[in-house]
Amino acid sequence: MPPRRRAVVTSRKPSLRTERLLQREGYPVLAGMDEVGRGALAGPVTVGVVVIDEGCRSAPTGVKDSKLLTPSARERMVPRIERWCIAWGVGHASPHEIDSVGIMGGLRLAGRRALAQLGTVPDLVILDGNHDWLTSPDEVGLLAFAEGNEGASTPPVRTMIKADMRCSSVAAASVLAKVARDRLVVDRAADHPDYGWLDNKGYAAPEHLEALRRLGPTEYHRRSWNIPGCRDELGDGSADVVEDGIGQGA
């Protein structure tokens, strides 16, 4: 008997399979949404949104979760994504806003700002992860913090774990968000070269943490988080979500 061949497990590329199923359920205009910067120590949290309809064909070749692409590949992908979808947007919440309303409130602000740029209202938002931070019960109070967004309504949301690995629309949104956020952080890097933002993009890399211990936080750091230099400055060093403040994220 010939030897049995070992099955080869390959990573599944994002596709429109999930989006097509949802469209058949009655949601013809879909928005894929993803965030980056949630675990950073400095810089904004950023949310990207990409809208497709039933006329959109397969996503541009190479679209995948932004963490799996090189910086140059992400940059090249942006104009192709913008031409492919029917609408797109990128929203940010600043470090000061995150300190004021917490990381979940910051995500909500950034997501609402991204939606406000679309010029169309999706029938459904596909949100990466298992928590719907876009339509939290206390969103009304948090929305007041976003100038010009009072009273905005949120489309229905469908959360999905690993949506950025499965859904082309969400993967595309992650690319737009990552590129936009990286540009903002890099623009600030020249003013604060000791923190290594050109390379770490505001995350908790060793050189970033060492600079915080030596120099303390800048105005671009999330000062409510439990990071070096902020504990003494704020008294108790409390963080909205400490585990999100120390980590290498997207």
Rank of each mutant, 00 (worst) to 15 (best):
C167H: 09
R183E: 12
A173H: 03
E139T: 03
R166Q: 13
M165A: 14
C167I: 13
W88A: 13
G102M: 01
L124H: 07
I81H: 01
E82N: 04
V140W: 06
S100R: 15
L134T: 03
R76M: 07
V175F: 06
G62N: 11
T70R: 14
D191A: 14
A172V: 05
A180W: 00
A190C: 08
V121F: 07
T159C: 15
G62W: 05
A163W: 00
R166S: 12
A152I: 11
R74Y: 03
R74D: 03
L69P: 00
D187K: 12
G105H: 06
A180I: 07
D128F: 09
T154P: 10
W133T: 00
H131L: 13
E150F: 00
Q117V: 11
M77Q: 10
R181F: 05
D99T: 01
V140T: 13
L127Y: 00
H96F: 12
K64C: 14
S72N: 11
V63D: 10
V63A: 13
A190W: 07
R83N: 04
T159I: 06
I103L: 11
A73S: 15
S153N: 12
G129V: 00
P71L: 09
M77L: 15
G102A: 09
D191I: 05
R112N: 10
R83E: 13
P60W: 00
P71E: 01
